[in-house]
């Protein structure tokens, strides 16, 4: 719940910023809002996560929304990680192993699959 609240708060800040400044990440407001024209709209493949710190400092709306979304994505992942630690501590090795496999699957999806299928 904390994760979701934090994430939505950051996303709302991002949206407000977008409307106040009318621009983000060198894209105009119309390029951001006109999703009907996929070729010119700003989508996630054009936003590197490594740009988050700089984007936040320069008050770029897109990076605030990005941060909010990744807080949301990492919320369930954190729950699995906490469960993994708890199972290992309890010496419940079957569930320690199962939760470790789930974590590995998630990180494979995050790190390797994009390179494998390309975009």
């Amino acid at each position: 719940m904390i994760g979701v609240n934090a994430s939505i708060a950051i996303i709302v800040i991002g949206v407000i910023m977008l409307f106040i400044r009318g621009t983000a990440d060198n894209f105009t407001l119309s390029q951001l809002v006109n999703y009907e024209a996929p070729s010119s709209t700003l989508n996630s493949s054009l936003v590197p996560l490594t740009g988050i710190p700089a984007g936040l400092i320069s008050l770029d709306a897109v990076y605030y929304i990005t941060l909010g979304l990744w807080v949301l994505i990492m919320t369930p992942v954190t729950v699995v990680f906490v469960a993994f630690v708890a199972y290992v501590k309890e010496k419940n090795y079957i569930y320690g192993l199962l939760s470790a496999i789930v974590l590995v699957n998630i990180f494979v999806a995050m790190l390797f699959i994009p390179g494998l299928i390309g975009n």
């Binding site: 989508n43 994505i73 699959i113 975009n119």
Partner: peptide, 20 residues
């Protein structure tokens, strides 16, 4: 939540997430 988070990370790199 876990399933969708895994799927989202692939969608992210493919550009299927439109911020607005």
């Amino acid at each position: 939540g876990i399933t969708a988070a895994t799927g989202t990370s692939i969608y992210w790199y493919e550009g299927y997430i439109q911020f607005f």
